Simulated scan of single mutants.
Amino acid sequence: MGTGQRKDPSQQRSQETVARILSATGQVLRAKGYTGCSTNAIAEAAGISKGSVYQYFANKDEIIEVLIDKIMEETTATFGTQLEHAVAKGTFLKDAALQSQLLAVLDRYRDILGSLLNDAPHVALTAHRSVRIEERCRDLLRTYVTLNPSAIGPGVDLDALLLVLTVSYREVSLEYLRRDLRDRRNELATVLYDMTMGGLAGRATRGV
Protein backbone atom coordinates (compact mmCIF):
# COMPACT_ATOMS: atom_id res chain seq x y z
CA MET A 1 0.00 0.00 0.00
CA GLY A 2 1.42 3.39 -0.98
CA THR A 3 2.44 6.05 1.50
CA GLY A 4 -0.54 7.97 2.87
CA GLN A 5 -3.34 5.85 1.41
CA ARG A 6 -6.37 5.46 3.65
CA LYS A 7 -7.84 2.37 1.99
CA ASP A 8 -5.90 -0.57 0.63
CA PRO A 9 -6.99 -0.89 -3.01
CA SER A 10 -6.90 -4.69 -3.03
CA GLN A 11 -9.83 -5.19 -5.38
CA GLN A 12 -9.37 -4.60 -9.10
CA ARG A 13 -12.00 -1.87 -9.21
CA SER A 14 -10.33 -0.05 -6.34
CA GLN A 15 -6.92 -0.41 -8.01
CA GLU A 16 -8.34 1.06 -11.19
CA THR A 17 -9.80 3.98 -9.24
CA VAL A 18 -6.48 4.70 -7.55
CA ALA A 19 -4.71 4.48 -10.91
CA ARG A 20 -7.16 7.04 -12.34
CA ILE A 21 -6.58 9.32 -9.37
CA LEU A 22 -2.80 9.14 -9.78
CA SER A 23 -2.99 9.68 -13.53
CA ALA A 24 -5.33 12.63 -13.04
CA THR A 25 -3.02 14.12 -10.42
CA GLY A 26 -0.15 13.98 -12.91
CA GLN A 27 -2.31 15.71 -15.51
CA VAL A 28 -3.30 18.48 -13.11
CA LEU A 29 0.28 19.02 -11.93
CA ARG A 30 1.48 19.27 -15.54
CA ALA A 31 -1.25 21.74 -16.45
CA LYS A 32 -1.55 23.83 -13.29
CA GLY A 33 1.47 23.08 -11.11
CA TYR A 34 1.35 22.32 -7.41
CA THR A 35 -0.43 25.55 -6.42
CA GLY A 36 -3.20 24.90 -8.93
CA CYS A 37 -3.61 21.28 -7.89
CA SER A 38 -6.53 20.46 -5.58
CA THR A 39 -8.63 17.44 -4.75
CA ASN A 40 -11.50 19.08 -6.67
CA ALA A 41 -9.32 19.44 -9.77
CA ILE A 42 -8.02 15.89 -9.39
CA ALA A 43 -11.53 14.45 -9.04
CA GLU A 44 -12.72 16.39 -12.09
CA ALA A 45 -9.76 15.22 -14.18
CA ALA A 46 -10.32 11.63 -13.03
CA GLY A 47 -14.04 11.79 -13.76
CA ILE A 48 -15.01 10.73 -10.25
CA SER A 49 -16.53 12.40 -7.20
CA LYS A 50 -14.39 14.13 -4.62
CA GLY A 51 -15.78 11.67 -2.08
CA SER A 52 -14.28 8.82 -4.08
CA VAL A 53 -10.88 10.51 -3.85
CA TYR A 54 -11.24 10.82 -0.08
CA GLN A 55 -11.94 7.10 0.20
CA TYR A 56 -8.27 6.53 -0.57
CA PHE A 57 -6.45 9.75 0.31
CA ALA A 58 -6.86 12.40 2.99
CA ASN A 59 -5.57 15.29 0.86
CA LYS A 60 -3.66 16.17 -2.29
CA ASP A 61 -0.25 15.82 -0.64
CA GLU A 62 -0.94 12.18 0.18
CA ILE A 63 -1.87 11.54 -3.46
CA ILE A 64 1.28 13.29 -4.64
CA GLU A 65 3.41 11.25 -2.24
CA VAL A 66 2.14 8.03 -3.80
CA LEU A 67 2.51 9.46 -7.31
CA ILE A 68 6.16 10.35 -6.65
CA ASP A 69 6.84 6.83 -5.37
CA LYS A 70 5.27 5.43 -8.55
CA ILE A 71 7.41 7.73 -10.69
CA MET A 72 10.55 6.66 -8.85
CA GLU A 73 9.64 3.00 -9.33
CA GLU A 74 9.25 3.58 -13.07
CA THR A 75 12.48 5.57 -13.21
CA THR A 76 14.36 2.86 -11.34
CA ALA A 77 13.01 0.15 -13.64
CA THR A 78 13.77 2.10 -16.83
CA PHE A 79 17.26 3.23 -15.89
CA GLY A 80 18.05 -0.10 -14.25
CA THR A 81 17.29 -1.86 -17.53
CA GLN A 82 19.57 0.56 -19.37
CA LEU A 83 22.35 -0.11 -16.87
CA GLU A 84 22.02 -3.87 -17.24
CA HIS A 85 22.05 -3.62 -21.04
CA ALA A 86 25.21 -1.52 -20.89
CA VAL A 87 26.90 -4.09 -18.67
CA ALA A 88 25.81 -6.95 -20.94
CA LYS A 89 27.08 -5.16 -24.07
CA GLY A 90 30.32 -4.12 -22.42
CA THR A 91 29.62 -0.40 -22.86
CA PHE A 92 29.19 0.36 -19.15
CA LEU A 93 31.31 3.43 -18.29
CA LYS A 94 32.86 3.59 -21.75
CA ASP A 95 31.47 7.08 -22.27
CA ALA A 96 28.88 9.48 -20.83
CA ALA A 97 25.90 7.75 -22.48
CA LEU A 98 24.48 6.39 -19.22
CA GLN A 99 24.74 9.71 -17.45
CA SER A 100 22.89 11.33 -20.34
CA GLN A 101 20.27 8.58 -20.28
CA LEU A 102 19.68 9.12 -16.56
CA LEU A 103 18.91 12.80 -17.14
CA ALA A 104 16.74 11.91 -20.14
CA VAL A 105 14.68 9.53 -18.00
CA LEU A 106 14.10 12.34 -15.51
CA ASP A 107 12.91 14.55 -18.37
CA ARG A 108 9.92 12.26 -18.84
CA TYR A 109 8.54 13.52 -15.54
CA ARG A 110 9.93 17.05 -15.63
CA ASP A 111 6.55 18.81 -15.71
CA ILE A 112 5.55 17.06 -12.49
CA LEU A 113 8.82 16.89 -10.59
CA GLY A 114 10.04 20.37 -11.50
CA SER A 115 6.86 21.92 -10.16
CA LEU A 116 7.06 19.97 -6.92
CA LEU A 117 10.74 20.74 -6.33
CA ASN A 118 10.11 24.46 -6.71
CA ASP A 119 6.69 24.81 -5.08
CA ALA A 120 6.36 21.83 -2.71
CA PRO A 121 9.75 20.74 -1.39
CA HIS A 122 7.99 19.05 1.55
CA VAL A 123 6.68 16.35 -0.83
CA ALA A 124 9.50 16.32 -3.35
CA LEU A 125 12.36 13.91 -4.06
CA THR A 126 13.87 13.07 -0.71
CA ALA A 127 16.89 10.78 -0.46
CA HIS A 128 14.93 7.65 0.54
CA ARG A 129 13.03 7.77 -2.73
CA SER A 130 16.13 7.35 -4.84
CA VAL A 131 17.73 4.68 -2.68
CA ARG A 132 16.85 1.73 -4.93
CA ILE A 133 18.32 3.16 -8.09
CA GLU A 134 21.37 4.33 -6.14
CA GLU A 135 21.86 0.84 -4.72
CA ARG A 136 21.67 -0.66 -8.20
CA CYS A 137 24.19 1.82 -9.54
CA ARG A 138 26.56 1.10 -6.65
CA ASP A 139 26.25 -2.65 -7.16
CA LEU A 140 27.00 -2.34 -10.86
CA LEU A 141 29.95 -0.07 -10.22
CA ARG A 142 31.35 -2.61 -7.76
CA THR A 143 30.83 -5.30 -10.40
CA TYR A 144 32.60 -3.14 -12.96
CA VAL A 145 35.59 -2.71 -10.65
CA THR A 146 35.66 -6.44 -9.94
CA LEU A 147 35.70 -7.25 -13.65
CA ASN A 148 38.09 -4.41 -14.48
CA PRO A 149 40.50 -4.19 -11.53
CA SER A 150 42.83 -1.92 -13.47
CA ALA A 151 40.06 0.71 -13.59
CA ILE A 152 40.56 1.62 -9.93
CA GLY A 153 43.72 3.37 -8.90
CA PRO A 154 45.92 2.40 -5.95
CA GLY A 155 44.74 3.75 -2.63
CA VAL A 156 41.24 4.64 -3.85
CA ASP A 157 38.65 4.13 -1.10
CA LEU A 158 35.77 2.70 -3.13
CA ASP A 159 33.19 3.06 -0.35
CA ALA A 160 34.05 6.73 0.13
CA LEU A 161 34.00 7.31 -3.61
CA LEU A 162 30.59 5.65 -3.95
CA LEU A 163 29.20 7.87 -1.19
CA VAL A 164 30.48 11.01 -2.91
CA LEU A 165 29.20 9.89 -6.31
CA THR A 166 25.79 8.96 -4.91
CA VAL A 167 25.26 12.35 -3.30
CA SER A 168 26.67 14.20 -6.31
CA TYR A 169 24.47 12.40 -8.84
CA ARG A 170 21.39 12.90 -6.68
CA GLU A 171 21.97 16.62 -6.20
CA VAL A 172 22.82 17.22 -9.85
CA SER A 173 19.65 15.37 -10.85
CA LEU A 174 17.53 17.51 -8.52
CA GLU A 175 19.12 20.72 -9.75
CA TYR A 176 18.68 19.54 -13.34
CA LEU A 177 14.94 19.34 -12.74
CA ARG A 178 14.63 22.36 -10.48
CA ARG A 179 16.36 24.78 -12.86
CA ASP A 180 15.40 23.11 -16.16
CA LEU A 181 18.91 22.48 -17.45
CA ARG A 182 17.92 20.46 -20.51
CA ASP A 183 20.10 22.60 -22.74
CA ARG A 184 23.08 21.56 -20.58
CA ARG A 185 22.32 17.84 -20.46
CA ASN A 186 25.32 16.69 -22.48
CA GLU A 187 27.75 18.91 -20.60
CA LEU A 188 26.42 17.77 -17.22
CA ALA A 189 26.56 14.13 -18.30
CA THR A 190 30.16 14.54 -19.41
CA VAL A 191 31.20 16.12 -16.11
CA LEU A 192 29.47 13.36 -14.12
CA TYR A 193 31.23 10.74 -16.24
CA ASP A 194 34.62 12.43 -15.89
CA MET A 195 34.11 12.75 -12.14
CA THR A 196 33.27 9.04 -11.89
CA MET A 197 36.21 7.85 -13.94
CA GLY A 198 38.59 10.34 -12.37
CA GLY A 199 37.55 9.19 -8.91
CA LEU A 200 38.07 5.55 -9.82
CA ALA A 201 41.50 6.24 -11.24
CA GLY A 202 42.44 8.35 -8.21
CA ARG A 203 43.33 11.34 -10.35
CA ALA A 204 42.12 13.87 -7.79
CA THR A 205 44.86 16.14 -6.53
CA ARG A 206 46.08 15.05 -3.13
CA GLY A 207 48.04 16.90 -0.49
CA VAL A 208 46.68 20.33 -1.42
Rank of each mutant, 00 (worst) to 15 (best):
D69M: 07
A124N: 05
R182P: 02
G114S: 12
H128W: 07
G47I: 08
V164P: 01
A201W: 04
L200C: 04
Y109P: 02
R170S: 01
T146E: 11
L93V: 13
K94E: 15
V87S: 10
C137Q: 12
I21Q: 01
D183E: 14
V87Y: 14
E134G: 00
Q101Y: 03
A97T: 08
T3R: 14
L200M: 05
R20Q: 12
L67M: 12
A151C: 11
I64T: 13
D119W: 03
V131L: 09
T205K: 12
L140G: 08
G198D: 03
F79S: 02
L83M: 15
V123Q: 00
D183K: 13
L161Q: 01
L83C: 12
T17K: 07
V28R: 00
R185M: 01
A46Y: 06
R138G: 06
P9K: 12
A86F: 02
G155T: 09
L83D: 02
T196R: 06
D69Q: 14
L163V: 08
R203Y: 11
V164F: 08
V66P: 08
Q11A: 14
Y144P: 01
I63R: 13
V87I: 15
T76K: 09
L29I: 07
R182E: 10
D183W: 04
I112D: 12
R142T: 02
K32G: 02
V87D: 11
E135S: 05
G47D: 06
